[in-house]
């Protein structure tokens, strides 16, 4: 789509585009290109000689059981974060969408966690989950459940999942509410006159009409769980214990920053890029489909 009315000036648009294109080139295309290039290279132990090794970095990556563990952890983690954050948000949105008094007040009270940084959210949850100073952690230990997310890998995973999902609920809530409010009243009234019970109305009318929002949020939540939760993990578990919460992005950070393995970390970056591109492609396909609605 474009406008039919345009200004005839020739030089000006380039000038207007220059800042963004320059930044995009230097900080986007250059690094992305370098990542792809470096992922085919290997430096020797002293960082002196660099040789082209083709796909070897990738082969090594996918033969590394620790990396495959990371992939699995990422999938488990992302599934639960997405499922939790979306189902809780949908439930709350459906309730807030009922025309009750104070609906806007609830909205205000539910949206602010959006503004909290993942790392700060993690700090907040320390005081819930910490085995000695956390409300729930201390309680669990008190009744005889051995709870320490710094020692138990499963408990660590639960902790980062809850903290990550908590922060994302408000975002999902906003979109579900917007989606619910855009469903025409008349459709719901027609269903009510047809005699459908409220539950049936929800599953046969509301939920299908909400599917574009749901699908969109699915992609967004997965992306969030893949990348934006770095702060949560770093602040709560540092990927541990024994790499139990070391997701792909966390591992890429450790390999690049701590282990300074340029080839491997570049290869990991490329794998992550491909993952995002796949997610985005799915999203675009969906957007195309949405046009037909």
């Amino acid at each position: 789509m474009r406008k039919k009315v345009i200004f005839p000036q020739v030089g000006l648009p380039y000038l207007l585009l220059l800042p963004q294109l320059a930044i995009t080139f230097v900080f986007f295309f250059l690094p992305a290109g370098q990542a792809i290039w470096f992922s085919f290279l290997r430096q020797d132990a002293f960082g002196i000689r660099t040789e082209f090794v083709g796909l070897e970095n990738f082969v090594e990556l996918f033969q590394d059981p620790l990396y495959l563990d990371s992939v699995w952890i990422t999938l488990v983690f992302s599934f639960w974060v997405t499922a939790l954050a979306m189902s809780v948000a949908l439930g709350l949105a459906v309730l807030a969408d009922r025309h009750i008094r104070g609906a806007t007040a609830y909205k205000t009270l539910l949206i602010w966690p959006y503004a909290i940084a993942p790392a700060v959210a993690a700090v907040l949850w320390i005081f819930i989950f910490h085995p000695q100073i956390g409300l729930l952690g201390k309680f669990l230990n008190g009744i005889g459940v051995r709870w320490d997310y710094k020692l138990n890998g499963t408990q660590a995973l639960i902790t980062v999942i809850v903290a990550s999902a908590w922060k994302q609920v408000s975002y999902n809530f906003l979109f579900f509410l917007a989606g619910l409010q855009s469903i025409p009243r008349s459709v719901l009234e027609a269903a009510a006159i047809d005699g459908a019970s409220p539950a049936r109305r929800f599953w046969t009318v509301v939920f299908p009409l909400l599917s574009p929002t749901t699908f969109f949020l699915l992609v967004i939540n997965l992306t969030y769980a893949f990348f934006d939760t770095f702060g949560v993990i770093d602040a709560l578990t540092k990927g541990g214990p024994a790499k139990a919460t070391s997701t792909l992005i966390y591992r890429a950070y450790i390999d690049g920053r701590v282990n300074l393995d340029l080839g491997s970390s570049s290869a990991q970056s490329v794998v992550l890029m491909l993952a995002v591109i796949a997610l985005t492609a799915v999203q675009f396909r969906f957007i195309e489909r949405k046009v037909h609605y």
Binding site: A32, D228, S266, M273
Partner: peptide, 9 residues
């Protein structure tokens, strides 16, 4: 590509 993905390059 969010910044996190291309962070090292």
């Amino acid at each position: 590509l969010p910044v996190e993905v291309r962070i090292f390059p």
